[in-house]
Measured scan of single mutants.
Amino acid sequence: MQRVNMIMAESPGLITICLLGYLLSAECTVFLDHENANKILNRPKRYNSGKLEEFVQGNLERECMEEKCSFEEAREVFENTERTTEFWKQYVDGDQCESNPCLNGGSCKDDINSYECWCPFGFEGKNCELDVTCNIKNGRCEQFCKNSADNKVVCSCTEGYRLAENQKSCEPAVPFPCGRVSVSQTSKLTRAETVFPDVDYVNSTEAETILDNITQSTQSFNDFTRVVGGEDAKPGQFPWQVVLNGKVDAFCGGSIVNEKWIVTAAHCVETGVKITVVAGEHNIEETEHTEQKRNVIRIIPHHNYNAAINKYNHDIALLELDEPLVLNSYVTPICIADKEYTNIFLKFGSGYVSGWGRVFHKGRSALVLQYLRVPLVDRATCLRSTKFTIYNNMFCAGFHEGGRDSCQGDSGGPHVTEVEGTSFLTGIISWGEECAMKGKYGIYTKVSRYVNWIKEKTKLT
Results as ranks from 00 to 15, higher is better:
R180F: 04
R226C: 05
E142G: 07
N80E: 09
P101T: 03
E434H: 14
T445N: 04
E79P: 15
V326H: 12
E72A: 15
L24R: 03
T287Y: 10
N452R: 13
G105M: 04
A149I: 12
F176L: 07
L163W: 01
G412Y: 06
G253R: 09
W356T: 05
S187Q: 10
C18W: 06
N151W: 09
S430D: 02
Q143D: 00
H303E: 08
E142L: 04
K126T: 14
A26N: 03
K152A: 10
C141L: 00
T332S: 11
F71S: 14
G254I: 00
A9P: 12
N166D: 07
W431D: 10
K440E: 14
I275V: 10
G179T: 01
V181L: 10
K339F: 08
S406Y: 14
T290D: 04
K146M: 13
C128E: 02
V263D: 01
S354K: 09
A192H: 09
G427L: 01
P120K: 07
L130M: 14
C145A: 02
Q237W: 10
P197R: 09
F121G: 15
D232Y: 12
S182F: 08
E54H: 13
H314Y: 09
G413Q: 07
D249F: 05
L163C: 02
D95E: 04
D338W: 03
I390N: 12
R191P: 13
S156P: 00
K247H: 09
C28K: 02
D131K: 09
L189A: 11
E27M: 04
E129W: 00
F176H: 09
K446R: 10
A307L: 07
G246L: 04
V269C: 09
S354F: 07
F360G: 10
G246C: 03
Y450Q: 00
C178P: 01
E285S: 10
Y341Q: 10
F121V: 15
R384P: 07
A266N: 02
R298H: 05
E193L: 11
N48G: 06
E320T: 01
L60D: 07
V92C: 04
E35D: 14
V56H: 15
T215S: 11
L19T: 05
V30R: 15
D110Y: 04
T417M: 04
I454N: 01
N42K: 08
E86H: 15
K45D: 14
T194F: 13
A308G: 12
R226T: 12
C170N: 00
E285K: 12
E27L: 03
G351D: 01
I15C: 06
L460R: 15
F224W: 12
I428W: 04
L318V: 08
R449C: 11
K293Q: 09
T158A: 09
R191H: 07
K387V: 05
I309K: 11
I210A: 12
E286Y: 09
K137C: 03
K274G: 11
S354G: 14
L103C: 03
E53K: 10
I136K: 08
C18F: 14
E323W: 06
A233Y: 08
T458I: 07
V195R: 12
N127F: 05
E61N: 15
C157Q: 00
Y441C: 03
K446V: 02
C396A: 01
S25K: 06
Y330C: 03
D405M: 11
K89N: 14
F348L: 07
I390E: 05
N38Y: 14
T332K: 08
K51W: 03
M6D: 08
I429E: 12
F399P: 14
Y161Q: 02
D212P: 07
R294G: 01
D378H: 10
R180T: 04
S406V: 05
L60Y: 10
S25L: 12
P175H: 09
I334F: 01
V296I: 06
I428S: 00
S184V: 11
A26P: 02
S430Q: 06
S187F: 11
I334K: 01
G253C: 10
W356F: 12
Q143L: 01
C97W: 02
L244G: 01
S255I: 08
S169P: 01
N283T: 10
V273T: 12
P172K: 06
E281K: 12
S423D: 03
C157M: 01
H400I: 14
D110H: 05
K68I: 09
E124M: 07
E286V: 08
L24M: 10
E270D: 13
N100E: 08
A233N: 07
L189G: 09
T287W: 11
F176I: 09
I17W: 12
N135A: 12
G13Y: 12
H282N: 12
Y161D: 01
G105S: 05
G412Q: 04
G349Y: 11
I390V: 15
F238Q: 04
A149W: 06
Y201P: 10
F348D: 08
N203C: 03
P324N: 05
N80Y: 05
E124D: 10
R364A: 14
P324W: 02
K455H: 14
C252F: 01
E66G: 09
L103Q: 14
L20I: 07
N104Q: 03
E281T: 13
L20K: 02
T342P: 01
C119W: 00
V195W: 11
Q167L: 13
S156Q: 08
E67V: 04
C335R: 02
V195S: 13
G439N: 11
V374L: 04
E73V: 10
K293G: 03
A207P: 11
